[in-house]
Nucleic acid binder design. Structure first.
Lengths: 186, 186
DNA sequence: AACGATACGGAGCCAGCGTTCCGGTTGTCA
DNA sequence: TGACAACCGGAACGCTGGCTCCGTATCGTT
């Protein structure tokens, strides 16, 4: 990875940049040829640097997910765990909703992607934040980290369905708060 | 549609039944050939009865959506609008989550499907139920019928991501209740 | 029974997309 | 500067899946 030829390194960067843009706009659905064209290289070149489209996708997405995890870790020792947690929750959704790549990654991460503990940092950091918020009495206790991931995916679906305002996420946040009633609906 | 040959009518019914089953299991993604095989007919026969796969899909789904709308209309004059509404909300989600076809239909209905006011009955009935619940002071007032559709789509995504329990929908329901706080998160 | 209309089946067409292959090009190093 | 290895581009392959075409079978009627 270091002893690459100069043009190879250059092309690799171009492919990554193009993939980042294309995936962000249209998600995993974007044809690989489009990425190649956008990068100004041939399809073969893409495959020289990444074994598959999926691998390229993950390379692009992992970095971003890792940023989220990093941010979450930085927030772990905050004063007001409840506010910090909820704030973080909506920020993640807001960011991700602007990036189809992340939406797709999160949505399918239950299936098979990220299987090798790839995005586990994120999950762990999220769970930690949640736990602290719960211990502080700010968030209801009947959910865990996996539930949270599911909720994020759901919020992203909502956001995609009716973009903009984001006031619907607030409904979820309100539902997340502690002391939420014993709903007795069927 | 009435002066059809007997075998034609029979095959049409077989196709519809097969489509209902296949779409319910795998959503719009199921190949049309699979439906044909399941129905015990050739692909050509399917196309004799429905101009496109999309048309077949809508024929299958519309019926179901109409049932939802019908049910909602029957509930419009209930005693306790709040409970009735929330109850209906979770019932729709529970039903739809068992049927990929409906999930897909709802998720894409913002895009182009149902363009000709096809599922508008449902939307209208849903909005009516919501309005009554709001007037009864049981549901927060800062949402409308479209928001509700978005929330349903979101809940379906949640349900698909982590199936079963359905206790996550309760979070949304709790968030939907009136008097939910002024969330001051960013 | 026989005939015309209607319907059937499934092979085949076409388009999109992931992936591979290979002849030509370009960077690198002696 | 020459030569070798690494790299590039894009044509081509295989597969999937929607849709069509047409020879054949079936139905309904006379």
């Amino acid at each position: 990875m270091e002893k690459m030829r100069a043009d190879a390194r250059r092309n690799r960067a171009k492919v990554l940049a193009a993939a980042e843009e294309a995936f962000a706009a249209d998600g995993l659905a974007v044809p690989l040829d489009d990425i190649a064209r956008l990068a100004g290289v041939g399809a073969g070149t893409v495959y020289r640097h990444f074994p598959s489209k999926e691998a390229l996708f993950q390379a692009v997405v992992l970095e971003r997910i890792e940023q989220f995890a990093e941010e979450a870790r930085g927030l772990a020792a905050a004063d007001d765990p409840g506010a910090v947690f909820l704030d973080y929750f909506v920020r993640v959704i807001k960011q991700a909703s602007l990036n189809r790549a992340i939406c797709d990654a999160l949505a399918e991460s239950g299936g098979h992607a990220f299987k090798a503990g790839a995005g586990d940092d994120f999950r762990a950091a999220l769970a930690e934040l949640l736990k602290r918020a719960q211990d502080a009495g700010a968030v209801r206790r009947d959910i865990d980290g996996d539930d949270l991931r599911a909720l994020i995916v759901g919020c992203l679906a909502v956001e995609r369905y009716s973009p903009g305002s984001g006031h619907l996420v607030r409904i979820v946040v309100d539902g997340l708060r502690a002391s939420a009633g014993e709903g007795d609906v069927a």
